[in-house]
Amino acid sequence: MTRSQRTAAFIASRLASVVLTIAGATLLLFLMVRLVPGDFTSVMLGPRATPELRAQITHDMGLDRSMVEQLWLFASRAATGNFGEDVVSHRPILDIVLDVIPNTLALAFSALALALVVGIPIGVIAALKPGSWLDSGLALLSISFITTPTLVVSVILFLIFAIGLHWLPVAGAGNPGDIMDRLRHLILPSVALALGWVGYISRLVRAALLDTLAELHVRTLRAYGVSEYRIVGLYALKLALVPVVSILGIGLGDLIGSSVVVEIIFARSGIGSLIFNSIAQRNYPVVQACVVFIVAFYIVANLVVDMINALLDPRIAVGRG
């Protein structure tokens, strides 16, 4: 088998596992949300929810069918991108989810970019001076970032930069159509979300870089008189980034999960706050659609990461990595 055939086989097997994982995760969550007590009509209408209305809305949501029927209906519709219609607003659920996804993706990707831009240099600096005061200080800083909950970071940033200094806005995602306003509204939530990952990435880069710098080929480079900065910049960092890239897929998933907290604190619309509110309202069809999107996104992100890793280190694609 040639290298390109092996890579194609690798991609095909990963795609097959993607489909199976999305189906499995969706099935699990489909069953789990139905174990939660409570019904949509009572939450939405309170004492106005008469038995007649409750039965009517339960029927409209398809919740009076058997579990198997509900699952089949959901799966067959979801496969064609049709998640049905929201029982309150009568809007297609797909539209409701697509309305908020750009906000969440902007938040997650900007946080990830920030984490990389800040985390990698910190890790490199620490690895270049292992055991020094600078290394210890950066270790303390990184661990502080990791251990401080996003909730706390959000509130502190909020109080300092929005309330105290009035530099940045407090709530929302900004005026639609005004990119600068959207960007201003993105700064605090992104920083709040990124900070923990700055810590993770810097520690990971430091450890990986130290391992790489101790390898034989690096010792050979040193013996040839190549400067330490060239060794790190041109050779060692590329290899040290393999585990960082591996963790990015998980990182994106985690950032989307953590976005629930940030979106609620900063009153941003997004998939996190949509899921949170839909669970509170027991609006199962919307929860299910959101979950499908998140699972799909998470898996695709991991797939892309695997591809990048295969490019960075061909041993992975042939199953030797």
């Binding site: 309330i163 709530a171 929302g172 609620i264 009153a267």
Partner: peptide, 18 residues
């Protein structure tokens, strides 16, 4: 009308003159 579910957030937003 801005949709801000938490009163605490909207109060802070008011203080920031948004």
């Amino acid at each position: 009308g801005k949709i801000i579910p938490e009163h605490k957030t909207s109060f802070l937003s008011y203080q920031a003159k948004e």
